[in-house]
Amino acid sequence: MTPLWFDDTMGIGIAARIGVKFDQVGGSNASVQKVSFPFSAGVRSYVRVDPKWYLGLGGGTNKELAPSLSSSGDLQGGATFTSPWGGYGEFGVVNFSNWHTVFGITLRYTRMSLNYGGSAIRADNVGLTFSYQPNP
């Protein structure tokens, strides 16, 4: 939601994002999977640099919901982590292909950790995402 605009050149709003993250490692007889549901909320601004192009800047707080490891094959067992609130900053560009179709590329740095058995495992990461907005 970007309700605050200055002369069609700069907009400021808020955004919330929920998703799923997945990774796995394994061999011929076993594998381990990691799944989590990242949630983030923060502010985002757009700066118009061309009739069809905007730069996007944003930042806020994030949390990994229900991060867990599970295994399959000859390896049995799993682990459930906790993840405290972290933060993120992002930068990207969006392009209006036409009024209803907006594509974007965003680079996001996320500061976070996973806690297990009283110890914290740093999980800071950089993510590259491609996005699509069906602009109403």
Partner: peptide, 30 residues
């Protein structure tokens, strides 16, 4: 003029970083 950031947005991406969480030892270390 068209303005972005209103309505739903769908993302697909890849994240990299953090300390090693799981190591599997096989023919090649992974």
């Amino acid at each position: 003029t068209p303005r972005p950031g209103n309505g739903p947005e769908f993302f697909l991406g890849y994240d990299y970083g953090g300390k090693t969480l799981v190591t599997a030892t096989m023919a090649v270390r992974n």
